[in-house]
Each structure stands twice: as structure tokens, then as C-alpha cells.
Design a protein around this nucleic acid. Structure first.
Lengths: 172, 172
DNA sequence: AATATATTGTAAGGGTACCTGACTAAATAT
DNA sequence: ATATTTAGTCAGGTACCCTTACAATATATT
């Protein structure tokens, strides 16, 4: 049986981490251009990330991959089109489908954004970095299991795959 | 100089952690009542948390503590009133002020929510829990510094204090 | 070939989290 | 007694998501 106090300690720190990160994010956004409130893991950012992995997906494919409704997907894609980050074109083989492609600007934005190493990792020693990586691996796997078991059968396996793909690509 | 590869590994895991947590949160919310999309660290949840620490604050005090505009604060408070989580009453000493107080229902919701230990910590050993706590302490402090130095002078010190207070209360 | 069904996408509308700007009401300062 | 500061409200806007309803295209069935 695990030590409850130690768990509570860690949980507290994790909650704190969540709150502080949120705060730090806000600060960062406040500094930069006013309109840029994209977190890269939500909404338009998610789309960009998915396309950076696999360009030329249909809206439906994007929706499925990212576990969004078709309507939300359409909304974000349209916003990205307005910003010239992606383009829409009707598929020739199946004219119901719309193919979404990154523009150069879009691709650059996606890779720029996702290749940043957070500053706060500079305060950790090599040993601590190893420990953290190891611990997060365990936690992430546990979360995947929780997601997988609790809800709709395999719908979320896809999201898991997107995340893992993204992480893999991130190292190249 | 820190090992860049190790940093990148850890950063990747951290990003993954962020994404997976987001996912897991969604799943959790989807299971429960449909209307309940509160993350406890945002909007209405933040207010509840602050009041659970110190009941009977004015709207202005809430806004300052939580680094929200007075307008956003008013919006969230009004929503909470509608849900019977808090009550509004004009202060007798200074009739410009509105005092916000938790109802029993509100207090219960706040404490219920914030006293949960995330399941995923069950997969860690005692040693790993210690390591994680230690690492997150360093990271959080680093983030506090970043926040503190980069932006408006001392506005964010208050937020830091709220978080720390919350964490402290969390152990009682 | 003609009709029925399934798939992709759009339109409209709603809810939550925030913000800015404009404006009262009450308290305090001059 | 007037001017200013402080607390709060109202209106309106953006981003993120969802649901319900509906049009167009593709495929399956008769």
C-alpha cells in the first residue's frame, strides 16, 4: 500500500503545477500580440498539430483524430483559413470531402510552437530529468488506461495515437 | 550545462502529460452530468476555491486575488448565485461593496472537488512520489520567478499567494 | 435505373471562460 | 460642496466546444 501522505504531497504539487502553468501561460500571452490566445493543444492549435503530422486530411478525419465534432472542426478550420494557415479544397475522388492542407505559414507556426523547450526545465539536474521522464511515463500510461477503460470503447485510442505520434515526431 | 537530450525527453513527456490530462478531464466530465464542465481552476471553480479558503470576500477582493477583471468576476459570481453555490449581500459598513458567501452546497462542492487524489498517483512508488514532489517544487518555484520577473510588478505575487494558501489548506 | 440509406459538410444557436469600454452609485478628499 | 476614487453593472466581443437540423454527394438495395 502506498504512503498516503506522500501521495497527498505529490498531488498538491501537481495541482499547484497546473495552476502555476496556467498563470504562466496567461502572462506569456499577455506579453505577446493581443490576439494570440492559442494553446496549441486546443481548438485551432490542435488542428495545426495534427496537420503537421499528416497533411492533407479531410475534415472528418481531423474530427475523428482529434475527438472533436465535425462542426467544431469546421469552425476551427475556417478560422485557420482566414489566417492563411491552411487551405480547403474539394476532393476529386469523393466530392463530399474537403481536404485541408497546411500553408507554409501554417507549417512554420506549428513547428515553431511545438519545438520549444520550457525554460523551467533548466532548473533540474540530469538525474532529476531522468526521474521526471520516468515518472511521467508511468503517469501518462495510467491516464491512458483510465481513459480507455472508462468511456466509449475505442474512440479515445485514436486520440492516444495522435498524442503518441506527435511526441514521436517531436524528437526528429 | 544540462543534458539537452534529457531535457527534451522530459519536455516531451510533460507535453504529453498536458495533453493526456486534458483528454482525461474531458472523459471525466462527459461521464458526469452534461452541464458540468468546470475545471475548478478556472472561472466559477476558481471563485469557489477562493471562498473555501476565505469566505465572505467582496467581489473586488475576489477579482484581485484571482487576477480576474471585475466584470469577469461579476459574471462568475452571478452564475454561482443562480446555482445556489454562493450568496450576494451588500456590505453594511461600505455600501458599495458586495459580500460573497458560500452556501452549504457551495462549500461542499468546493471541498469535495479539491480533496480528490488523482488516481494516477497510485502507480507510483513512495520513492517516486518523493522525487516527483521534489522536482515539482523546483519547477513551480521557477515558474513563479518567471511570472514575477516578466510582467506587471507585483500583481502576480497575489496569485502566487492564493495558490500557496490553497495548497496549504489542502493538507488540513 | 430508381429509390433508400449513409457519409461529409454547413447553418444556426447555446454555454463557458475571459476581455475592453462605457456608465452608475456610493465613499472619500479637497 | 464639489471632485475624485472605488465597487459594481451593462453591453458587446473573441475563443473553445456542443447539439439539432439540414443539404449535397456516394453507395446499397430493389
Amino acid at each position: 500500500m502506498p504512503n498516503l501522505l506522500k501521495q497527498k504531497n505529490a498531488a498538491g504539487k501537481l495541482i499547484e503545477f497546473g495552476m502555476v502553468r496556467h498563470l504562466a501561460d496567461n502572462v506569456a500571452h499577455r506579453d505577446s500580440d493581443k490576439g494570440e490566445r492559442q494553446s496549441m493543444f486546443q481548438g485551432q492549435g490542435k488542428i495545426l498539430l495534427a496537420l503537421a503530422q499528416t497533411d492533407g486530411l479531410s475534415q472528418k478525419e481531423l474530427a475523428t483524430k482529434l475527438d472533436l465534432t465535425a462542426q467544431s472542426t469546421a469552425e476551427f478550420v475556417n478560422k485557420l483559413v482566414k489566417k492563411h494557415y491552411v487551405t480547403k479544397e474539394k476532393s476529386v475522388t469523393d466530392r463530399r470531402m474537403t481536404i485541408i492542407r497546411l500553408t507554409d505559414l501554417g507549417r512554420q507556426t506549428a513547428t515553431d510552437e511545438s519545438s520549444k523547450i520550457p525554460n523551467f526545465l533548466n532548473v533540474l539536474t540530469d538525474e532529476e530529468l531522468d526521474q521526471l521522464t520516468n515518472i511521467l511515463t508511468k503517469i501518462n500510461n495510467s491516464l491512458y488506461e483510465e481513459i480507455d477503460s472508462s468511456d466509449q470503447p475505442s474512440l479515445f485510442k485514436k486520440s492516444q495515437q495522435v498524442i503518441k505520434d506527435h511526441i514521436r515526431d517531436w524528437f526528429l
